[in-house]
Design a protein around this nucleic acid. Structure first.
Lengths: 121, 121
DNA sequence: GATAAGATAAACCATATGGTTTACTATTGC
DNA sequence: GCAATAGTAAACCATATGGTTTATCTTATC
């Protein structure tokens, strides 16, 4: 990890790029695959009903968003998940967390009452 | 629009739509504003150096993603945050959480400088 | 009833996105 | 050396996106 040679270590982690990268099912599938371990491009492309260049483009989008890192070894490009931009997403989400817990609290209370009524509690 | 008889109750919460909606700074700003309370469209548009129709389009994108809800009252459209799609995002993120905690555990000092340099929102 | 205000609709434009196919480069292995 | 493999580059296409301006509709207000 973090080869000493030539790797760019300042992943952009721009939220625009990250969210846009995540806004595509194919790319989320690629991330899911990479969450099980690194893989080369052809390997990543195999499950998709799509040309290799198309998958290559998706990988580039993920890479520009900082979500994957690529280490080139001969003719093989090994891709690995970089989870840090996802942490940025979570940091962003944090501010909104209270809102949905409020909402869900209200809902669960609602359904709790429902259940209470049906169970004659 | 949104007649009481014919209202679509199942907000899509399609992750593609949600992530795409979030992939724009203007729209994230709008959500941030709405996290402080509901607002009408002109009110929402005021801080932006952008035409009203442009803001209207952004609001529609947020609405289609289920991130805001609109209640029309006379000529005033009141917009309110709907946080539930964000909960879906968090549910999706959950699977990746372990990766960044691993990474941060292993390399926290290494990346601390990066994080300091790039804490843009 | 006239006019102002809130907001969308429509037409338009430039650029981005997601895919294709063909061509090309570079590496590997016999 | 030569053929196969891994992958990108380039050209192309259709559609989406993000903005504009002008027009329109509806609702308030005087």
């Amino acid at each position: 990890m973090l080869s000493s040679t030539n790797e760019r270590r300042t992943a952009p982690q721009n939220l625009d790029l990250v969210f846009k990268a995540l806004g595509d099912q194919t790319r989320r599938d690629l991330l899911a695959r990479l969450s099980e371990g690194p893989a080369m491009v052809t390997e990543l492309a195999k499950p998709f009903d799509m040309s290799l260049p198309a998958v290559g483009k998706h990988l580039r989008v993920l890479e520009k968003a900082g979500l994957i890192e690529r280490s080139i070894n001969g003719r093989v490009h090994q891709c690995a998940l970089n989870p840090l931009p996802l942490k940025k997403v979570e940091d962003w989400l944090e501010h909104y967390q209270k809102f949905w817990s409020e909402t869900l609290d209200a809902l669960s209370e609602y359904f709790q009452n429902d259940a209470d009524n049906e169970n004659n509690v």
